[in-house]
Computed example of a mutant assay.
Amino acid sequence: MMPELDAQADHRDAQRVLRAAGWTPGGAGDWAIALRSPDGTAAARISPFDPTGPYTAALYRDAASTRQVPHLYAHRRLTGGGDLQILEWLRPVPVDEAAALHRAIAAGAPPVAELAAHIRRVHARARRDLPWCGPLDDNPANVMRAADGRLVVLDLFYADGPNLYATAATDPGRVAALIPEAERRFMTEIPLAASGPWPPEERRAMRAALAAADARPAAT
């Protein structure tokens, strides 16, 4: 189910190839857009910049036996720090139902105890490995229902965007030192569908400041 992508494909290439294959818009969030497969059974989550993508994919693989995470059909890192996940198609659930599942996970309650243990392990690894890795995201939108009726959690891990982007604006050298350029090339291209809009001039200024910070070590 993974599209045929060039080895150097970025998020734009992934979206172009999938759209050409008949995938259609399925929504957008702050970090990624979604496309739906022609048969309606799968979703492609495409992010220009998502440091936590590999950890989310690891959770889906590790916790697959619980059936409380989405089926992950394919995962691939994209050039420039992007992330592509092909998942089963999911539907929203009522807020109270989602909140109850989040509470059960936080408490390690028996129906989700195995899932909660997987989440803690993978999240601890992400917090250890990644600068600006945020806490678990208990947004009700991160609980959805699969076609077979089961509840699943998704997108629990995220970069602390407000802190990361504020640092990029005020101390770009710190961001340049902690996140390699190859892993943040498109960090100003996230959709921000919920938190935006993000003025183009601010995006340009951030790119210029990070490029200058990248150039300084080479100059010295």
Rank of each mutant, 00 (worst) to 15 (best):
M2D: 14
E4Q: 15
L5V: 06
D6E: 15
A7P: 06
R12C: 11
A14G: 11
L18Q: 11
A20Y: 08
G22E: 10
T24P: 06
T24V: 14
G26A: 15
G26D: 14
G27P: 08
A28P: 11
A32T: 05
I33T: 10
P38A: 03
R45Y: 02
I46N: 00
S47E: 01
G53N: 02
P54V: 07
A58F: 03
L59Y: 00
R61I: 02
A63Q: 04
A64V: 02
S65V: 04
R67P: 03
Q68R: 07
R76G: 04
D83P: 00
L84F: 02
L84T: 01
L87R: 04
L87I: 02
E88A: 09
E88R: 06
W89R: 13
L90Y: 01
D96T: 09
H102R: 11
G108R: 07
A109V: 12
P111M: 14
R120M: 11
R120H: 13
R121H: 10
V122D: 06
H123T: 01
A124Y: 06
A126H: 07
R128K: 13
D129W: 00
D129G: 03
G134D: 12
D138L: 09
P140D: 00
P140S: 01
N142F: 02
A147T: 13
L151D: 13
L151N: 12
D160A: 12
D160R: 09
G161F: 04
N163W: 12
L164G: 09
Y165T: 08
A166M: 12
A166F: 05
A166S: 15
A166G: 15
T170F: 03
D171G: 07
V175G: 01
A176S: 09
L178C: 12
I179A: 07
P191Y: 00
A193N: 06
A193H: 09
A194F: 08
S195N: 09
G196F: 04
W198M: 04
P200N: 11
E202A: 05
E202W: 03
M206W: 05
M206N: 09
R207L: 09
D214T: 11
D214E: 13
R216A: 14
R216P: 02
